[in-house]
Structure formats: C-alpha cells, structure tokens
Simulated assay, not measured.
Amino acid sequence: MGQDGPGDLTMVPVSMGTTIVATTFNGGVILAADSRTSSGAYIGNRATDKITPLCDNVYCLRSGSAADTQAIAGYVQHFIAQHQAEENDRISVKTAATLVRTLAYNNKDNLSAGLIVAGWDKHGGEQIYSINLGGTMTQVPFTMSGSGSTYIYGYADKNWRPNMTQEEAHDFVQRCIRYAIAWDASSGGCIRTVTITKDGVKRVFIPGEEIPPCFGELPREARVG
C-alpha cells in the first residue's frame, strides 16, 4: 500500500468560496447571496441558488461544502414537514434554526457547513440565527459569511443600522453582495435575494449583466473577452 503524498488529490484541501448576507429590517428579514460555486480555481456552477427554503416562513443561506449544506437543509425540511403536520401550525424560526444547529453540531467533525437561518413568525417576529462551522448558534440582527464577507465587513459595519425600511435593507444587502463579487475571486455570478415578512415571501433575481460595476472596475460593455 502506498502512502498518501502530494500526488494524492484526496488529501489536498479544496478552497471553496461564496458570499451570503442576511439582515433584519422593520417588519421582516432579507437574505442575499451570490451564485458562484467553486472548487479552487474551477467554477463548477455560475448560477447556484444558495437560498434554500426550510418551510414557508423560514429560509437558510448556505456556505461551505455545497453537498454538506444541501444534505442538512434536506433533513431539516423533512423534520419540519413532520412537525408542522403533527402540530397543525407553522414552526417557529428558532425551532427551525435549532434543528439546523443540532445536525451541524452533531456532525461537526465530518461536515463543512456554515449556515444562516432567517425568517418571520408570530412569536418572535423577524429573526436571524448564525450557525458557524462548529455548530454554535447565535441570534443576530444581521450577519454575513463566506470568503467574500471578509471584503465587506467595513462597509457593513459603517452602513448597517437597526429599523431600516424594506427598501433600505434590500439596497444594503445588494450592495454587500455586489462589492464582495467585485473583490473576491471566489464570489460571482448573479445576485439573489429573499424577503420574508408576515405577508409572505418575495424573491428577486439580478443577473450578472445588470450588476453595476464598482469603483475601479470597467463597465461590462468595455471588457474584452
């Protein structure tokens, strides 16, 4: 039996990138994500949907291994469907987030999964829960994750504020993703957002050609190749 070495691709760490952002506003939450799925320098999918519904009023943002986060979301969708059928009522955002946290924590040695769970319920209103790679869950007013988040912490800290209107919050998350796409090579593609309020869910899709260039970037029509 040969020993693992530099030529063994199974032992080489894979660099994965993304940018996900969520914020509360006065009456709801907004989740936003880029759409690039990468494995090192290879872009596997330019139009991935990283915003996954767990149920009607709770969605999650996925970062880390796409397979790991999809598996967690699938199990939680199943558990929530059972719970809501038994209780004949919508699940609370905190309960949904706790299910995600439990799966992430119990499998922390085998999974690479950082998730953000957000939604609205009649008990707690708008809520966001950040669940890191180790399975720690924290309730926060806004949060971000992924490789692109390191480029936008300064912008977010300066421009986020509590009790924003829906329009202000949507502009905030859109700018966060836009700036991350501009400066992080592992983030890119288009921008997707999901807005959740007591009145329901609204999705917005912004294709790449409609994302304005940032400072220092050439406009798309001026680029070659």
Rank of each mutant, 00 (worst) to 15 (best):
M1E: 09
Q3N: 12
G5Y: 03
P6R: 02
G7I: 13
L9N: 11
T10V: 06
V14Q: 15
T18Y: 13
T19S: 14
I20F: 06
I20T: 13
I20N: 11
T23Y: 07
N26I: 02
N26S: 10
G27E: 02
A32E: 00
A33Y: 03
D34Y: 10
G40T: 13
G44S: 14
R46D: 11
A47I: 15
T48G: 11
T48I: 06
K50Q: 01
I51Q: 08
T52M: 14
P53C: 04
C55T: 10
N57R: 04
L61A: 14
S63I: 02
S63Q: 02
A67E: 08
D68Y: 12
A71D: 03
A73P: 14
G74H: 09
Q77V: 10
Q77H: 13
I80W: 06
N88Q: 09
D89K: 15
D89R: 15
I91S: 11
S92A: 10
K94I: 05
K94S: 11
T95N: 09
R101W: 03
D109G: 04
L111H: 11
A113Q: 07
L115W: 07
L115K: 07
A118C: 07
D121N: 09
D121G: 08
Y129K: 10
I131L: 12
M137H: 05
M137D: 05
V140Y: 05
T143G: 00
G148A: 03
G148N: 07
G154M: 08
G154V: 06
A156F: 04
D157Y: 03
K158S: 08
N159F: 02
N163W: 03
N163H: 07
N163F: 01
M164F: 01
M164N: 00
T165P: 05
T165C: 04
A169N: 06
H170T: 13
H170K: 08
C176W: 09
I177W: 09
I181M: 09
A182I: 00
S187G: 08
G188Y: 07
T197Y: 04
T197V: 03
E209M: 00
E209A: 00
E209D: 01
G216Y: 06
E217A: 05
E217L: 02
A222F: 11
